[in-house]
Design a binder for these strands. Structure first.
Length: 880
RNA sequence: GCCGGGAUGGCGGAAUCGGUAGACGCAGCGGAUUCAAAAUCCGCCGCCGCAAGGUGUGUGGGUUCGAGUCCCACUCCCGGUACCA
């Protein structure tokens, strides 16, 4: 594996010496550079994080989402990988056999954009970025097993994408159909959704068109039900992620049925699907997509309709745009028959109906669907109320929520179905449709099959060959991998592979005649759908995954951004199930526990370009303009003072130029400070708005830890502490208890804060007989977050040879006992003071003490107590 | 639009089961040290008020002895929305 990775070589010292890099005599001042280099050399030479399968130990597979090699690490990476490293080190100290690997999600669009800008092949740009970022990861001291490193742009990885794709083709899981894409008519190229800005191409400013082209799909819908049901087997996943996935899969129970019609003398059926068959008697029109055959047929000899259909083909294909655009339509002049009444219903073409979704046609019930209501009002179409909720008045003036209510309504004006409620109405109507052979109940999913074809160069080639005689033919296994040439430089005018004769030319595996290679590449989500399993089979050139997967998978903890809550995580779950179907793995789900970290946000500044495109500015290039309340209202460019647009805060990204490079942080303060600050700043699941201040505080803390250690070493001769507990000891153990509780909740910010509190306590009682014990606890609790400084101090103070091998501390109950506690005193629910009582005091004693207290007397103002509430160990509330 | 989440001092955040709101830090202010500065150390620090006290967790209602926490209705912000990763 290492042979294909262009990265910083790791120097491996093969000696058996325990400390090949002994730190120099302890410095009084904190020098993170030396301390960190020495600790990292120690982990490297001892192979501390080299993971080997060891069935005798409980395993812990700690997996972080691998980065896209965009050039430099950003704060989101530092946050993500620090969380992973804290968990890795914490579990290691608790006796687990831990694997924490790292790799590179190395195919993708930004490499092509960089290539266009710098005229450097994406391969070279990517390799350079990987080398730089790898060195950054190493300088942060993450406990990674670099011998399992992988990069998805290398053939020894992506050949298995190709191999599995061919297996899916054999199983009917992969198949071909048309897809709708964004087309830039000027650059003559397919645009990603991200490259479409307000309906225009980002580089050319030209209005984007929709275009239908062939593509390959993976039948994720075959697994829809299992993907949904298995969410219940994932208690270690956040509820919000499971909810989002369930809604995305969108299982619905409805009715698929047809409107019969006759056209050109032939009997035809217009199929639709609805979850509101109970409103079928309220249908006043139907709407079909612009690409629907019925629309195409109607447009023949109808110039106005043809023009409208053409207009529908402009604009982006994004769901958000489709849902918010103005709904437009035009009648086709074709009528279909209502399946139950035989009444004539006109078919319209609607710009909001999508060919790719369901049947590409919908029934319209304006009275009980908000969108149909607006559409009918706009075009003066009939609105027929067929659901009534007792006590509510129906009006055509404006849409009311209750018009779509499924719970309380009953059918009216629906003939034999009058009086039936939702479920009963659907049962009856579905039965009648079935009897007429015009439809039946059907379970449907919102989830669509996964289109994996990309008309782009920098991706995994789809292993197919096009032969004039034999059609599309799979590349035989023995000819894999289909290797992507690494020297192309895209220029924005389409896939450069189409101009590469040496790539294109091949012979048909079936007939042996000259043929052409497929030039589409795979969606990069394919690459990221199984990399975590490949880590476990690192270096195996003969199979996709081997026996070692059984030991490590599923991952015990997966950590990554919340932005991947649906697509990446769902595709990975799907890929896992396909691999299981093919007998490659035994587990059903890849990730036992999931931590979705919040995104790191920063301000976004932009400006329109003359062409109509958009350019972004980095925060350091601009000056903020604030209003009186201190809120940011705009910005000016530092360079020339010109006004630019303030776009609020948003996720740090290369394309928006609002990323913060952690490099200067590391150089100025050291890795421990950077790591500690990231953990301290906020809880992992919350979004984090970037701010430079606060880092100083983390650095000050490191310096204080160091000097306390230095002072403690000097007075180490004070002898061992007795068993007698002191207030310091009680406080340290109390904080330890809290820290351990918070670690279990993955709430690292309060663990960091507990460490600070421990040091505050120690500094106030440096001569306490338990100071050494207290400091040893502090070092161990702090070590997963700030591993270098704690490693160094552990050695300096002679606590042991390696803090990583030290046992994780547990609070001693004996240290926690006390004989008096303080209760809060309230009168009528308001805080009025406090009360000291003996630990074992009973309710009556507490009540009596409370009533007798001066503050209670004052605020009761002579009224007799109506009630006294005692919350044991907490408070007394006198209601007077 | 739809789906998911969030909102607490000047700032990041804490508050485990409905029980002292603002732990721990940042910034700020005052002091010590210093020729001076940096660094370091000590103290103050939600808002109104001289104080007693009042008030306060995005907005408006509600439940409760007691609500940041539970319920209802909203506002704004963030993520996703299937070709950014």
């Amino acid at each position: 594996m290492a042979a294909v990775i262009i990265g910083v070589p790791i120097t491996r010292c093969r000696g058996l010496a325990r400390h090949p890099h002994p730190p120099p005599a302890m410095q009084e001042k904190y020098h993170p550079g030396e301390i960190e280099k020495s600790a990292q050399a120690h982990w490297d030479s001892t192979g501390a994080f080299r993971a080997l399968e060891d069935p005798s130990k409980p395993k812990y597979y700690c997996l972080s989402m691998f980065p896209y090699p965009s050039g430099k690490l950003h704060m989101g990476h530092v946050r993500n990988y620090t969380i992973g490293d804290v968990l890795t080190r914490w579990h290691k100290m608790r006796g687990f056999n831990v694997l924490q690997p790292m790799g590179w999600d190395a195919f993708g669009l930004p490499a092509e954009n960089a290539a266009m800008q710098n005229k450097v092949p994406p391969a070279q740009w990517t390799d350079d970025n990987i080398a730089y970022m790898k060195q950054q990861l190493m300088s942060l001291g993450f406990g990674l097993d670099w011998e399992r490193e992988l990069a998805t742009c290398k053939p020894d990885y992506y050949q298995w994408n190709q191999w599995l794709f061919l297996r899916m083709l054999e199983k009917g899981i992969a198949y071909k159909k048309t897809q709708v894409v964004n087309w830039d008519p000027v650059d003559q190229t397919v645009l990603a959704n991200e490259q479409v800005i307000e309906g225009r191409g980002w580089r050319t400013g030209a209005p984007v068109e929709k275009r239908e082209i062939p593509g390959y799909y993976l039948a994720i819908t075959q697994y829809a039900d299992e993907l949904l049901a298995a969410l219940d087997t994932l208690p270690g996943w956040p509820e919000r992620v499971k909810t989002m996935q369930a809604n995305w899969i969108g299982k619905s129970f409805g009715v698929r049925f047809a409107f019969p019609y006759e056209l050109d003398g032939k009997a035809e059926k217009l199929w639709v699907y609805t979850t509101r068959a109970d409103t079928l008697m309220g249908v006043t029109f139907c709407a079909v997509a612009a690409e629907h055959p019925l629309a195409t047929r109607a447009a023949q000899g109808n110039a106005a309709l043809a023009a409208f259909i053409d207009e529908c083909k402009h604009g982006s294909v994004m769901e958000a745009d489709m849902a918010t655009m103005e709904k437009k339509g035009m009648p086709t002049g074709i009528f279909v028959a209502h399946p139950l009444t035989g009444e004539k219903v006109e078919v319209w073409v609607g710009n909001y109906v999508l060919m790719g979704y369901g049947e590409g046609a919908v029934m319209a019930v304006p009275a009980h669907d908000e969108r149909d209501f607006a559409f009918a009002r706009k075009y003066g179409l009939a609105i027929k109320q067929v659901i009534d909720v007792p006590g509510k008045d129906y009006s055509l003036d404006a849409w009311q929520e209750w018009y779509a209510d499924k719970e309380k309504g009953v059918c009216i004006a629906s003939g034999k179905y009058d009086g039936l409620a939702y479920d009963a109405a659907i049962d009856a109507i579905a039965a009648d449709l079935k009897a007429k052979d015009l439809g039946d109940k059907q379970v449907q999913y919102r989830l669509r099959d996964w289109g994996i074809s990309r008309q782009r160069y920098w991706g995994c080639p789809i292993p197919l060959i096009h032969c004039d005689a034999c059609g599309t033919v799979p590349v035989p296994d023995e000819q894999l991998p289909v290797v992507l040439p690494t020297d192309c430089v895209p220029d924005g005018s389409g896939n450069p592979l189409n101009k590469r004769e040496d790539f294109l030319a091949c012979t048909c595996p079936q007939c042996g005649k000259p043929a052409r290679r497929e030039t589409d590449t795979m969606d990069t989500f394919v690459d990221s759908s199984w990399y975590y399993a490949r880590y476990c089979s690192a270096g195996n050139a003969t199979v996709m995954v081997d026996e070692r997967v059984k030991y490590w998978m599923p991952a015990d903890q997966y950590i990554g951004g919340i932005e991947h809550a649906i697509l990446h995580l769902l595709y990975s779950r799907f890929w896992t199930k396909v691999m299981r179907t093919l007998g490659l793995v035994q587990y059903d789900e890849p990730f036992a526990n999931l931590l979705t970290q919040g995104m790191v946000l920063n301000h976004i500044f932009s400006r329109r370009t003359a062409k109509g495109g958009i350019e972004y500015f980095a925060p350091e290039e601009v000056e903020l303009v604030r209003d009186e309340a201190g809120h940011v209202t705009g910005a000016t460019l530092k360079a020339d003072g010109s006004a630019i647009d303030y776009g609020g805060v948003g996720t740090m990204s290369k394309s928006k130029r609002n990323g913060v490079d952690p490099q200067s942080l590391i150089e100025q303060y050291g890795a421990d400070t950077a790591r500690f600050f990231m953990m301290f700043a906020s809880p992992p699941e919350q979004t984090l708005e970037w701010s430079d201040s606060g880092v100083e505080g983390a650095y000050r803390f490191m310096k204080r830890v160091w000097s306390f250690g230095h002072a403690l070493k000097a007075q180490a001769a004070t002898g061992e502490a007795g068993s007698e507990s002191t207030p310091l000891r009680r406080e340290i153990h109390l904080l330890l208890k809290q820290a351990n509780y918070d670690l279990g909740k993955l709430q690292f910010n309060t663990v960091a804060s507990a460490c600070m509190k421990m040091l505050n306590a120690l500094e106030k009682a440096p001569a306490d007989p338990h100071a050494r014990e207290g400091f040893s606890i502090l070092l161990r609790v702090l070590s997963p977050i700030a591993p270098h400084i704690t490693h160094g101090l552990w050695l300096e103070l002679g606590f042991g040879p390696d803090i990583l091998a030290a046992p994780w501390p547990e609070p001693l109950e004996a240290a926690l006992v006390q004989d008096e506690i303080e209760l809060v005193l309230q009168v009528n629910g308001k805080h009025r003071g406090s009360l000291r009582v003996k630990v074992g005091a009973d309710r009556t004693a507490i009540e009596a003490a409370a009533l007798a207290s001066e503050m209670a007397q004052k605020f009761m103002e002579g009224r007799p107590p109506k009630k006294v509430i005692v919350v044991p160990g907490r408070l007394v509330n006198i209601v007077a």
